[in-house]
Design a protein around this nucleic acid. Sequence first.
DNA 1: ATGGTTGTTTAACAA
Length: 264
Amino acid sequence: MTFRLVTWNINSVRARVGLLAQLAQALNPDVICLQEIKVENDKFPTDAITEIGYGHQAVFGMKAYHGVATLSKQPLTKEVRHNWCGKDDARHIAVTVAGNVELHNLYIPAGGDVPDPALNDKFAHKLQFFEEQTAWWSEQKGRSRRILVGDLNVAPLETDVWSHKQLLKVVSHTPIEVEHYARMEAAHGWVDAVRHVIPPADTLYSWWSYRARDWRASNKGRRLDHVWVTPALKGAVKDAFVYDEARDWEKASDHAPVVVDLDL
DNA sequence: ATGGTTGTTTAACAA
């Protein structure tokens, strides 16, 4: 069966339950992975999301910042909340979907403005997060069917940013971040499912700043949101796209949903 | 070179 997976940094789930319903209506995904839900667990809009059709919810939230949630039409099992860098800051939740596929939903630290770990604690945290993930994934054995999605806050390719040259010293596209991202990807043999479908030579973005007057006209985007699969699932990937229409919705998130269809 | 916007929570802070 075709399994449709969406990952979306929603930038506050309470501010955009209506847009979540719009997304469900337009794309009818089997599973939706949200980041930056910005709400603690007991204030999560469980009932409203159940009414939209997603009664199975794995939520890892905190007050005001970060937070991830995985929503499903079918039951989710084996929910695990992971903490990294000695913080309890709600950036990673794992579940099992479609019987035997382990799905990891991540929100990697943005990293602040100054791309120097000696001057900026947030950037140091981002690099440490990648290092801990890399070590952990290199030790994970035994399960061939895995998917990792989320706002990884790195645009790795030159075609993942509006100007490679102008963003070399901008957090999200600096060489040290791209190296950390690549090491984490290699640590578990991950395959970039979106670039498996859309050629790496094509420009592709999933985030456009709120600060542009006209985001589509200026088109100064970055591809920060990703879907990775293990090699065993590479052949199952049938389609992938960025649903940039959602960036035009009223009171939109600054991120667009990323969609991947798999034959599971 | 600078400033531009949004959400959460109430003057910043994070993105």
